[in-house]
Amino acid sequence: MQISRRTDALEEHMIIGLSNDIDLSVIAVVRSAFHEAINDGFTSVLVDLTNVTFVDSAALGIFVGLHRRCRERNGACVLVNPQPDVSRIIALTGLDVLLSIASDIETACALASSAAATSSTAATEMAQ
């Protein structure tokens, strides 16, 4: 498995690209990449699944963890372009309801910005 890291054009979101099979054997490495993005100050992380051929429940677990960390920082986690077999597993576990999913990076950036703005507004209203 290879992990790529880049930001969007506005440098607002971290885009982490994964590849091949995401199972227990690579979970620690992927989780570390997610933590690094958050520790670098990114509140929204896009996970590009275009080249991912397999996910198991351990992989879905770290997506949930990333989602939570982004939400806690008024940001968003968006899964990008999961292939049909991967989409099916996400749907079978019901996580297509919890997690944001986009078909491409551009849509994912818009989704993350929108979700972050909504969270930020809600947090401000709660504080008042």
Partner: peptide
């Protein structure tokens, strides 16, 4: 979102 395990 607080449950990362238990889906297997």
């Amino acid at each position: 979102m607080f449950f990362e395990n238990g889906l297997g």
